[in-house]
Amino acid sequence: MYQFTYHRVDSARKAINLAEKNEDAKFLAGGMTLLPTMKQRLASPSAIIDLNPAADKLAGIEQRGRAIVIGAMTRHYDVANSKIVQDAIPALADLAGMIGDPAVRHRGTIGGSVANNDPAADYPSAVLALNATVFTNKRKIAADDFFKGLFETALEPGELITKIVFPIPSKAAYMKFPNPASRYAMVGVFVARRGKEVRVAVTGAGSNGVFRASKFEAALTAKFHVKSLEGVNASADGLNSDIHADAAYRAHLIGVMCRRAVNKANGK
């Protein structure tokens, strides 16, 4: 790591104040991506604003009406094991339980994952497919407006996610095909149906990060059944190619994972 100055804060307000004064500062939440990146000397923030002392204020899970509200500093482990989430959106609990490994889930946070928008991270697919709303210290941002490409989001410098609100779907499921080596999503497909709307979000595959698979959405909106997907194929255009999967294989897997997700959502 390169040198940085370290700031411990016990509230979001203090964090934001500090961020305003330190241009190259980074918020430290779970640190599961930031710290390895810094260790490799691929990131050199001038200051670290450690949100962990504020975790109690920024974490928590509750149901408000037909939505689940998850505080930004809520750890993956707590989402995966939350009775509230398991009852209301089991697909979201499943997804949280598939991130990293148990030790990573004990530290990593939903806010950190969503703010980082790693193209192979799991959470962005849930945020997008469930049409969640991202709340920051300044405003609320609809999922469709939040993700802007590889590691890019609508967040402005110094803006901090405080919570994410997930409307409860009638049906949802997440299927993940992990990269054999890193176990990040090589292809992850989150399908969700709420009212008449079906949303299908794909992570891990797109060269521009998480995206909605509109062809699949259209087919499933007509009828939310795996048979609706017969003949529906993802295009390889714009998908990643690497040693683990070329674009054609990723496109194929989007179809397979989507079908399996629909079956799972339908209880099959």
């Binding site: 054999p180 080596a181 890193s182 990040y184 040693i243 683990h244």
Partner: peptide, 18 residues
């Protein structure tokens, strides 16, 4: 895996599958 310039592509456990 090396790329054609001799850079090691599988240079960590993220790409070299243990």
């Amino acid at each position: 895996h090396y790329n054609k310039d001799g850079q090691l592509v599988t240079a960590s456990f993220n790409d070299y599958c243990m």
